[in-house]
Simulated assay, not measured.
Amino acid sequence: MSRALLLLLGPLMLLACQSTPKTPDDAVRIANQDDTEQVHTELVRQMIAQRKYFAARAHLDALALEHGETPEIQLLRADCMRHLGELDGARAAYQALLNGPFAAEAAHGMGLLLAEHHLTAAISYLQRAVFLRPTHAAARNDLGYAMILAGDYDSAHRELSTAMELAPGDARALRNLVLLHHLRGDPSQAAALGRRGGLSQSSLDQLRQQANDLNAPVARGVGGP
Rank of each mutant, 00 (worst) to 15 (best):
C80F: 07
F102H: 05
Q74L: 10
F54V: 07
P101V: 03
I73F: 13
R57K: 13
E105G: 09
A49E: 08
T41M: 13
E66S: 08
P71M: 11
I73E: 11
R91A: 12
L65D: 12
A64G: 06
A58V: 11
V28H: 10
H59I: 00
L60M: 00
E42S: 12
R51G: 01
V28R: 13
I73D: 15
L87S: 10
P71T: 01
A55N: 12
L87I: 04
G85C: 07
I48D: 03
R51Y: 06
A104D: 13
R29Q: 15
A90T: 00
L63F: 02
D26M: 12
H108F: 10
G85E: 08
E69Y: 06
A31E: 15
L98N: 07
Q38R: 10
H83L: 14
E105H: 10
E86G: 05
H67Y: 14
L60D: 00
H59D: 11
L97S: 07
D88G: 13
L76F: 06
D88Y: 06
G68R: 05
P71G: 06
L76V: 02
H108T: 00
E66C: 06
L97G: 05
E42Y: 10
Q38N: 05
M81I: 02
L43N: 03
A96G: 02
P71K: 07
I30V: 13
A64Y: 03
P101H: 01
A107T: 02
I30A: 15
F102P: 00
F102D: 06
G68K: 05
A55D: 15
T41W: 11
G85L: 11
F102A: 02
I48G: 03
L43E: 07
D25R: 13
G85P: 04
R77C: 09
V39H: 09
L65M: 09
G68M: 12
A64H: 06
F102L: 06
R29V: 14
D79L: 10
E72D: 07
A93P: 00
F102T: 00
D34V: 10
H83E: 14
L65F: 04
D25F: 10
A106N: 05
A104I: 02
R82S: 14
H108K: 01
L114H: 03
D61K: 00
C80E: 06
R57G: 07
M47A: 09
L113C: 04
L65V: 03
G68D: 09
A27H: 11
R82K: 09
R91C: 09
H83A: 10
A49W: 03
Q95R: 13
Q50G: 01
L114V: 01
H67K: 12
A93F: 00
L113T: 01
H59E: 14
Q38V: 01
E37N: 06
P71L: 11
A27S: 12
F54E: 14
G109Q: 05
R29C: 08
A49Y: 04
Q74A: 14
R77Y: 13
Y53Q: 01
N32C: 13
A93M: 04
A62E: 15
A56D: 08
D35G: 09
